[in-house]
């Protein structure tokens, strides 16, 4: 996998930033020529994860990069925060589990909407989630 363009980074510290993340991801998804359904899935996943970064991570950054893998183009999005981290990852990835009063679908749902999902978290250090969606 190689980076096919400059990364764009947005600092997420408020509600408006979550909207900006959605709009940036949408723009890049259109540029990479994801299908309409895949665009919608990726933007939705980005919205969930950016909100997590804001609500649970206490704010952080979102970085959107165009990537390439042989003949396929795709988008990679990295959500990073220096928040409290996730103590029990398996539990957090379970449908319906929530500590924030939500529906508990953010993390597990977002994982189903993308092609690749990697999470790196340490209690007290923060959480980094990287997702990738490829063109079909």
């Amino acid at each position: 996998m190689t980076a096919g363009g400059a990364a764009e980074r947005i600092a997420v510290t408020s509600d408006q930033d979550v909207v900006r993340v959605r709009q940036l991801v949408r723009t890049v998804a259109v540029a990479v020529k994801l299908s309409l359904v895949d665009q919608t899935k990726l933007v939705t996943a980005a919205s969930e994860l950016a909100r997590n970064t804001l609500v649970y991570g206490g704010g952080g950054t979102v970085e959107v990069t165009r990537v390439e893998n042989g003949r396929r183009a795709g988008i990679q999005i990295v959500f990073a925060d220096q928040g409290p981290g996730i103590p029990d990852l398996d539990l957090a990835l379970t449908d319906g589990y929530t500590t924030g009063g939500g529906l508990g679908l953010g993390l597990s749902g977002a994982r189903r909407l993308v092609d690749e999902f990697a999470i790196d978290t340490a209690v007290g250090k923060g959480t980094t989630i990287s997702v990738t969606k490829w063109c079909r």
Binding site: T44, G109, L113
Partner: peptide, 14 residues
């Protein structure tokens, strides 16, 4: 609701 939105919601589990 748009079709793409509905499909995404189903996948999301909502």
């Amino acid at each position: 609701m748009r079709p793409a939105v509905a499909i995404t919601l189903v996948e999301l589990g909502l």
